[in-house]
């Protein structure tokens, strides 16, 4: 769902998907050399690598969207999510065994959280999959702490002056998942329908959840 779901959010051409960038030959060889030596020594197997890649491919922001939608409709689950996001994710069938501690941050009319990692590119991969390229970019990492309202505006997100913008820098062992506000006009919606409104960027905090289309 994630790929399709995001396309309508950013329709400008400059945000269109671009092909993968291939590594330089010396790095391609370094990867192959390290991998083949590790396999030859029995440290890991080709099968381990294949399974790990499958696991990575299976992780998409759709998982996070399901968690957010459940939190919107189930106050008891939301309480568990806010208390221990990793356990709540496990409850939803997410394998977080190799993940750092996950902390959920609730966006409210009073406070909007946006997550950045200024030191590297920490991201709740177990729940959202691999981070977007812009999240790893030097520009996003340098600017979000310096001019968050301007960065949010570039993502099409403008918030009232009265809303505190809180930039959360994941400098250590926490991975942060933003729980966006539930859009108005969604009373009585099913979890599946709600989850379709929860885009990846709303769980990083650069966007809001989508509003329902009439």
């Amino acid at each position: 769902m994630s790929g399709d779901h995001h396309d309508h959010l950013h329709t400008h051409d400059d945000h269109a998907p671009v092909g993968a960038t291939e590594p330089r030959p010396e790095y391609a060889r370094l990867e192959r050399a390290v991998r083949e030596l590790l396999i030859a020594k029995g440290v890991l197997t080709a099968e381990d690598i294949r399974k790990q890649i499958e696991l990575m491919d299976s992780r998409t922001p759709a998982m996070g969207a399901k968690i957010v939608a459940r939190a919107w409709v189930d106050p008891a689950f939301k309480a568990r999510l806010m208390a221990n996001a990793k356990a709540a994710a496990d409850e939803m069938g997410v394998d977080t065994s190799n993940s750092a501690t996950v902390v959920a941050l609730e966006n409210t009319p009073e406070r909007h959280h946006v997550v950045v990692c200024t030191l590297c590119s920490c991201y709740p991969k177990a729940i959202l999959g691999v981070p977007p390229a812009w999240y790893k970019s030097s520009a996003y990492r340098a600017r979000t702490v310096k001019e968050p309202r301007k960065v949010l505006a570039e993502f099409g997100t403008s918030l009232p002056e009265g809303t505190e913008i809180r930039v959360v820098d994941s400098t250590a062992d926490m991975r942060y998942l933003v729980v966006p506000m539930r859009p108005a006009g969604t009373e009585g919606w099913s979890e599946d329908r709600l989850a379709a409104l929860v885009g990846r960027d709303s769980m990083i905090g650069t966007a809001l959840a989508d509003t329902p289309k009439n």
Partner: peptide, 12 residues
């Protein structure tokens, strides 16, 4: 910088 009603957190 214009930082009205803006906070930031770091884990230290």
């Amino acid at each position: 910088t214009n930082a009205h009603n803006e906070t930031m957190t770091a884990d230290l």
